[in-house]
Design a protein around this nucleic acid. Sequence first.
DNA 1: ATGTTC
Length: 482
Amino acid sequence: MSVGIKLRQLDAYRWEIPQEGKMRTRGLIFCAAEMIPALRQDQSLQQVANVATLPGIVGPSLAMPDIHWGYGFPIGGVAAFDLATGVVSPGGVGYDINCGVRLLRTDLHRSEIAGLVQELVDTLFSNIPSGLGSRRRDFKLAPPTLKDVLRYGAAWAVKNGFGNADDLLHIEAGGCIKGADPELISGQALERGHDQLGTLGSGNHFTEIGYVQEIFDETLARALGVFLDQVTVIIHTGSRGLGHQVCDDHIKKLLQASTKYGFDLPDRQLCCAPIQSPEGEEYLAAMAAAANFAFANRQIITHWVRETFQQVLGLGPKALGLELVYDVAHNIAKIETHTVNGRPQKLCVHRKGATRAFPAHHPEVPALYQETGQPVLIPGDMGRYSYLLVGTQQAMEETFGSTCHGAGRILSRHQALKRARGRSIVKELAAQGIIIRGAGKGTVAEEIPEAYKDVEQVVEVVHGAGISRKVAKLHPLGVIKG
DNA sequence: ATGTTC
């Protein structure tokens, strides 16, 4: 428990952990007062303070309102490090490298799929391999091809017939992180990845058909191609066993490096290396390769979503208008330029369970969103709703252009299973008009809505604090889970 | 999150 951590309220949405002891900077947590008691139930505040001790940290050790305990760094954490003096840490990215979310729009009104949701869900379920260890039998990649996936990301997928060139303009970093080096991926990681491209995975990963339930900003919604009662699709998945193995491999290496560089770490899980060291550069190049695998993964699943809609609705691509709004990474470290003390500075920004939220006119935001700001996608639990937001200038000034990533768990998987015992979650959700198909035996029970914070409360904090801006709320109709 | 303990 983080009972002993000092916490000072700055305003309705901001809480500070004052700098003390070995901390090199303060902690800054975006959260509402009613979230504080739950926050103190785990180690996450201690983790915010621990991250503040790392060499070369710039600005505060940040946390978003969906903060909870993670490996070394809290999930919902953001930490930026100076390129010359700072470190990079696998714990600041997480095991699921480039876990992320993409939102697809359609030209369909929800009345056009009424009565077809079950068939859409069933067809998605048969077209997208789902569940723990899910593999695609007819989609094994020879090592040279897999290395191309790792190098080129979503661009590889498009080049090989999954989607179109326009999709790439609607993905963070164009769907390809530069500097990826497939030669740094272990044989074991390659082995785990070779038949997992185009698979959903397990846990909180999902593909969801929904509709636009509420619009908060009509002008922004229109500019993003979103309208009331529109059918939407959300895909949430990452780099599967490949990314997991890359994280594992590099944690081992960086544990050694931390000793070699003489770092005094409050927690071994914060193992890291100087950004500009062989170990640090190798982790970043391997992480980029795993991130590219995840971008390709979401791109291939998108292709199958399009095929599913065409198949079930008997409509062509033009009539469907099934286009990508945007694709965001929420577990990644990026080299970015930010203004620090009035001057541009190159930083390595770790976002772990946090989403980039760049504003209008930022050079890294695609041309078509220059006037709106970068779309930000915040999935909720499967029974409630998800949000579409945009990034803001305030985020650039306070959070290195970052915001929250989701609802955040409040019950452990074990607790959730216990809570779900004797109930049919599928039936309960069906009674609310939401059709669920889960691959894994316990996954749907582990993912019961009450296992999560209400994402609305999380979004109210980031909107209220001004680090992103609400555009629309999306309601689920049919979900496939791992 | 994860071939959920190589």
